[in-house]
């Protein structure tokens, strides 16, 4: 699959927003991969943290949205502590979560959740989950 890279994607509102919320300069990252090498949650991610910041550098918002990475991130800040370039990746992850949440889209359809699942879930998790994933 080919991706489109243009001045529009590189300097999009999305990129500006990520940088403004996270207070990080995305292009400072030189893709060494040390964040991915040390990430304790990597095993469950479909894209590595370093790949997420690369996608963010290129303004490829949809690819980030498709990956589960930002939701798996535990905000343990191991990546931020070890980054040789001083990029606070945990804050970038948080910014990406905020931007996605603020779209006010129903990510789950509550009526479609099976009754058995609802019965098994703790209430706190359900309320927290719905706040995050619904409009």
């Amino acid at each position: 699959m080919r991706i489109e890279i243009s001045t529009e994607t590189l300097y999009s509102d999305f990129v500006k927003k990520v940088e403004a919320i996270s207070e990080q300069t995305l292009i400072s990252c030189y893709q060494c991969g040390k964040c991915s090498a040390g990430c304790p949650m990597c095993f469950a991610m479909d894209l590595l943290p370093s790949q997420i910041i690369r996608l963010a550098q290129l303004g490829l918002e949809d690819d980030i949205a498709k990956a589960n990475t930002i939701w798996i991130c535990a905000s343990c800040i191991t990546c931020s502590v070890r980054c040789p370039k001083g990029v606070d990746l945990a804050r970038v992850m948080e910014a990406l979560r905020l931007i996605t949440s603020r779209k006010n889209i129903d990510q789950v359809q509550i009526p479609e959740i099976p009754k058995e699942t609802i019965a098994q879930l703790p209430q706190v998790a359900m309320v927290g989950g719905f706040r995050k994933l619904t409009a």
């Binding site: 060494c32 040390k34 964040c35 991915s36 090498a37 040390g38 590595l48 370093s50 040789p84």
Partner: peptide, 22 residues
Amino acid sequence: LRGKVSKIFRDGDKIKVWGADT
């Protein structure tokens, strides 16, 4: 292998290396 190593530590007889192949 293309990636910076995040952690190196002893594990018994061996040295463990946590890296990545980006």
